[in-house]
Write a protein that binds this DNA or RNA. Structure first.
Lengths: 220, 220
DNA sequence: GTCTATAGTGGGATAGAC
DNA sequence: GTCTATCCCACTATAGAC
């Protein structure tokens, strides 16, 4: 669409590059610790030029967040289309975990580096990640017979297996494939742990709990 | 020790209160986003007075970090005193997870809110948390027959179960007891998942090295 | 030990020329 | 679309009185 006499500098391209560079810096240094000057420098332009593309600093953040977050809704739709509820739990959780592409891992790493920035930004697409995931968690907990608060938490942990895997892999260069594989195994193991203690909830003593420190048993 | 004519204002107490308030604010808003003015205001003193107790802002951070981090060494010592290696894995991981008190949870929440601040601070006690844990992870991986990179990651995830539980419980007020219980169950489930796939890992093929991405084998 | 006052720096943001 | 120049503000940190 650019007219023949368009400048050598391509605005749209600069904008894209800016988003890429910014996400990178935000992930490595944190949002607050990254200045516009630094982003501009990396792009080879000036701070003021950056303002042509984004009216405010957090507009960059918004633009980054706005491009993701429909996966949870997809899994929700699938889940609601399933006839029998109980057996759907593990497939649903795995479906969510599987939906993590390499591109999504970048997003997860960013969110883990900026945990507070995420929920400080209401109405900007940030809750398009959090809220649907919470809804998904809620609907999945409903599939568990007698969900104790501890069970709900364990289920959330299963859903967040990718996040846990990314966190565990931080600062020890591991391939994304390995991270995803570990996340899958974790999700499966946690769902099964969740369902295992359900039928015969507490017969007498749990069959194989290593008693490490006496007196740290809780109620449940 | 204060002389009878000591001021009504108790310096040591102010310092303690400052550390408590600071940890709180750092956790809620992040280290960078918390100003000295804000901390001082909450204490009922001025910025300048705060400088009497701490020469620089990050001295507050150091003082906070310096009070923790021997648990991993304790578990290491216990581990090395165990005669038969293989069976010690699950007890060791649980021992580490069990060592989380309510006070430690505060620390974990802080670190999760400030993931980058932690590793940006070398020589200040920050690595007294990270390094021993890494060592513990390494020694534990050695107990696994044919540790693939994916297995090592899964083991780290087991050790970090408390962190994952805290993360999953964020912004949905859950009792610390419940968080700890979920962490324990997660740790157990992950260790068992780790050991389950081992005996009959892959009957032929390289003796048990999950070939996920060729060429990412590391040294050690 | 706490105060007031201020120096110095770096950040986000705007105006207007090219 | 990118530039130079500039404004304004909040923050860290210091000096010195009480």
């Amino acid at each position: 669409m650019p007219t023949p006499e368009a400048r050598v500098r391509d605005g749209a391209a600069t904008r894209r590059r800016a988003l890429h560079v910014a996400l990178d810096l935000f992930t490595r240094q944190g949002y607050g610790a990254t200045s516009l000057r630094q982003i501009a420098e990396e792009l080879g332009i000036t701070k003021a030029s950056l303002y042509y593309h984004f009216p405010r600093k957090d507009a960059i953040l918004q633009a980054i967040l706005q491009e993701r977050g429909t996966e949870a809704e997809d899994v929700l739709a699938w889940l609601r289309a399933q006839p029998p509820p109980a057996a759907a739990l593990e497939p649903a959780v795995l479906r969510w975990v599987e939906s993590s592409s390499a591109e999504k891992l970048r997003g997860i790493r960013f969110l883990q580096a900026n945990p507070l920035v995420a929920d400080g930004l209401a109405g900007t697409g940030a809750e398009r990640i959090g809220t649907p995931l919470a809804t998904l968690a809620d609907e999945l907990v409903a599939l568990v017979p007698h969900p104790a608060p501890e069970d709900a938490l364990l289920l959330r942990m299963a859903l967040l297996s990718i996040n846990a895997a990314v966190a565990a892999a931080a600062q020890s260069d591991v391939d994304d494939d390995v991270v995803l594989a570990a996340a899958r195994r974790s999700a499966r193991a946690l769902v099964r742990e969740l369902l295992a203690d359900l039928p015969r909830d507490e017969p007498r003593e749990p069959p194989g709990v290593a008693r490490v420190s006496p007196g740290t048993e809780d109620r449940r």
